[in-house]
Simulated assay, not measured.
Amino acid sequence: MTVPAEPEQPRPEQATNLVPVPSVAKVWNALLGGKDSRAVERELVERIRATKPDIADLANSVHRYKQRVADHLVRSARIDQFVDCGPGYPRLGENTHDIVQKFNLEARVLYVDQNPEVLAHGRALLAVNNRIGVLDADPNDLAMIREHQGSRAVIDWDRPVGVISTMPLVFADPERVDPAKTVQGWIPHLAVGSHLALGFFAVADGLETVAATIGAMFCSELHGGRFLPIPDIEAVFGELDLVGPGVALCDEWPPDLDEIEVGLNSIRRCAVAGVARVREPSHHTPSPPDSRNTHGYTIAE
């Protein structure tokens, strides 16, 4: 299903002159070994590799987590509709609908992105049946996504939804988007039983200098790509309970995954994730207000 396109709006990553501006989606595609990148993205990747030769492992850990968590949600949580925020370029057989519709043919998937080329590829390669949609919208604005008539053609927002976001919060402009406030703002728009599967770059012990250097390169060229301390990532979920191991390595998801050895100095230790489930609002006497969770919702296993 192809969601009608919105009027074209200026994109942050579009060049305002003849100098090309690196695209987050193309850089990520290059890190994953894809071909949908230009010289400007490949040059940035090579500069990062000069600092950390195994940088591609970071992207691959996040990418594999996204596949495994989609499988976990459709099989174990019995989620049958998904919103994939910032999916990037399609990869044959590795997209969210490929994973979830393999288990449940009736599962519905809405892909949300703002990159014009990602949208074009998505509409050509992802919308292969009427249970899949591609929407041009801000992947960090779930309220707008929910209200868009195109999303309602795919997603029944009165039922549980699996929201998967591994890149938009990471690569959002830190001056415009606060991950904790953004995620807490999502909760009232989700039905009880919905799941959030989020990915982040973390400042891992022993890799502080590398994380700072790569994060600075990302932010300088892509206006995002922050590496956050683990306490800041945990704060994204506020006082809410997390499913499974909590905020953990992407390589440790799902919880029943066989143990994976992650090298002491591997950049893979900077790829972390958390999964949470929305439940009924609490009705007990409220605690003093907490700026991280002002909506009265909690998340639990």
Rank of each mutant, 00 (worst) to 15 (best):
V69M: 02
D113L: 01
V40D: 01
M167P: 00
V170R: 08
A191D: 02
N293F: 05
R131W: 03
L32E: 13
E46N: 13
R279L: 03
M1D: 12
V27A: 03
N104K: 13
K35W: 07
G93N: 11
D98F: 12
T213L: 05
A120P: 04
L58D: 05
K52T: 08
D173W: 05
S266I: 06
N293G: 08
L142G: 03
I299T: 15
L105D: 12
V69Y: 00
R131P: 03
V19I: 15
F227P: 08
P87V: 09
C219M: 11
A212W: 09
H284S: 10
G93Y: 05
P281W: 10
D138I: 08
P174K: 07
D173V: 06
E46M: 06
V203R: 15
A180F: 10
E43L: 15
E234T: 04
H72S: 02
D251G: 12
R269E: 08
L169S: 09
L73Y: 02
S37R: 07
I299D: 00
G93R: 10
V112C: 09
V262G: 09
P188G: 06
E259H: 12
E221H: 14
V161T: 15
T285N: 04
I230K: 11
L125P: 00
H283I: 06
V83W: 00
V128Q: 08
V83E: 02
I233R: 00
R123M: 06
H195Q: 04
D205R: 14
L73E: 03
H72L: 09
L73K: 01
V45K: 12
P174V: 08
N60C: 01
P20L: 10
W28K: 02
I230D: 08
L110Q: 11
D80G: 03
N293M: 05
S287N: 09
T166H: 07
E13K: 01
E252G: 05
G150W: 13
E280N: 11
P286S: 11
P53Q: 03
L249F: 09
V3K: 07
S76A: 12
N130M: 02
V19Q: 04
I187A: 02
I164R: 08
P229S: 05
P174D: 07
V275M: 04
